[in-house]
Design a binder for these strands. Structure first.
Length: 372
DNA sequence: ATGCATGAGGG
DNA sequence: CCTCATGCATA
């Protein structure tokens, strides 16, 4: 309740969109999570959150009212130059050259340790979550967190370096929510212009829940994949099954905050259900009764399996991409093509790489805000 | 546990 | 084309 309300993170323009017509139904009901039928459809709730996040995140601004001088900022996200411009090639060359410089340290007198040195946060597994969920953050990550590169030259009016989450959580410093009721709130005022959403869940609450969840899950002897499958047995409105990946990500807090918030009640419900079931089973065993529950009858293999192939980007190529990313997180289609060409990768692969990188970066900001 | 991918919803 | 939630495939 604190968070977004008094934080400027939600900007006026979009605020109006933030009124959730079906807030009272809760996140889950208004959105089908992990439903096989409809893969994913952002609910108004999610949407609003997304918009809010996007709007408050300087990095997400594709367009800023272009001021004449903004054109001198060739590396700015907002800068859009004409394909024909004479400058263009020069600028792009510089762009590529810089990326190369970062990639090949030998060529320059200075040694640049790969900024993306260890991009994996797998250390998370150690679950030292009580303090910092992402102890493995490397230099690049912190570098990216502060986004220097985006706002290098003149700081326009958006140059505030405050990452969304940092702002958000700073405001929410003092957790208020009981946490148990998450996502199930409801305001009496439907059309209220006051952006009183329930997105503000204390991250620490989520963190501890995730940790408890994992422990209890393990105690139940259930795998992440099992949880995902069993979820559909709950018949929660709009909730289908989830993948092992998602459960894993929930436990390791590698989901977006909103995603965590949305999933929490669902997983909590499952946990309670599973534990109750467990108790019941024990009781029944005592009575000599057998209950056939959760017999995991694996589905038969389908005949038509067109396996999705995952292209793997080589380390060197990846390093180049990372260098590019440091310079510009949202490269234009043209630049993407350029990069793709240079790396001999499909343009779409490069585009998706950037998309994923941005998502990842956002999560890291989240973590950063958390530890703050 | 995580890299690359998909698809909905929204410009 | 983007963001975001999510998942397949795989290291």
């Amino acid at each position: 309740m604190l968070t977004n309300t008094n934080t400027s993170s939600i900007e006026q323009g979009t605020t109006s969109k933030l009124s959730f017509p079906n807030t009272s139904t809760g996140i889950i009901n208004s959105n089908s999570i992990g439903n096989a039928n409809s893969r994913y459809s952002p609910s108004n709730f999610y949407r609003a959150a997304a918009v809010a996040a996007a709007t408050s995140d300087p990095n997400n601004r594709r367009y800023m009212p272009s001021t004449p001088w903004s054109k001198s900022n060739c590396f700015g996200e907002n800068f859009k130059f004409e394909p024909n411009s004479l400058f263009c090639s020069t600028i792009d060359d510089n762009f590529i050259r810089q990326a190369e410089a970062l990639t090949k340290p030998e060529s320059s007198s200075l040694y640049y340790p790969s900024p993306f040195a260890c991009s994996s946060a797998n250390a998370t597994a150690s679950s030292s979550s009580s303090t910092n969920a992402y102890p493995g953050s490397s230099s690049i990550e912190s570098h990216l967190l502060s986004d220097h590169n985006q706002h290098n030259h003149h700081a326009q009016f958006n140059s505030d370096l405050h990452p969304f989450y940092q702002r958000q959580y700073a405001a929410a410093a003092v957790g208020v929510l009981p946490g148990m009721v998450v996502g199930m709130h409801h305001h009496s005022v439907v059309g209220s212009l006051v952006p009183s959403h329930e997105l503000d869940v204390d991250p620490r609450e989520l963190e501890s829940f995730a940790e408890r969840f994992k422990q209890r899950r393990i105690k139940l002897g259930v795998t992440q994949a099992d949880v995902g499958h069993q979820l559909s047995k709950l018949k929660m409105p709009g909730v289908g099954s989830l993948s092992q990946s998602t459960i894993c990500r929930f436990e390791s807090l590698t989901l977006s905050h909103n995603n965590m918030v949305a999933l929490k009640p669902v997983l909590q419900a499952w946990l309670e259900f599973a534990e109750a079931e467990m108790r019941q089973r024990k009781k029944d065993e005592m009575n000599g009764t057998m209950i056939g529950l959760s017999g995991h009858i694996s589905s038969s293999g389908s005949l038509i399996d067109k396996k999705r192939k995952r292209t793997s980007i080589a380390a060197q190529e990846k390093r180049f991409l990372e260098s590019c990313f440091i310079q510009q997180q949202r490269p234009s289609g043209e630049r993407i093509a350029q990069i793709a060409d240079k790396l001999d990768l499909k343009k779409n692969v490069v585009r998706v790489w950037f998309c994923n990188q941005r998502q990842k970066n956002k999560r890291l900001r989240f973590a950063a805000g958390q530890s703050a």
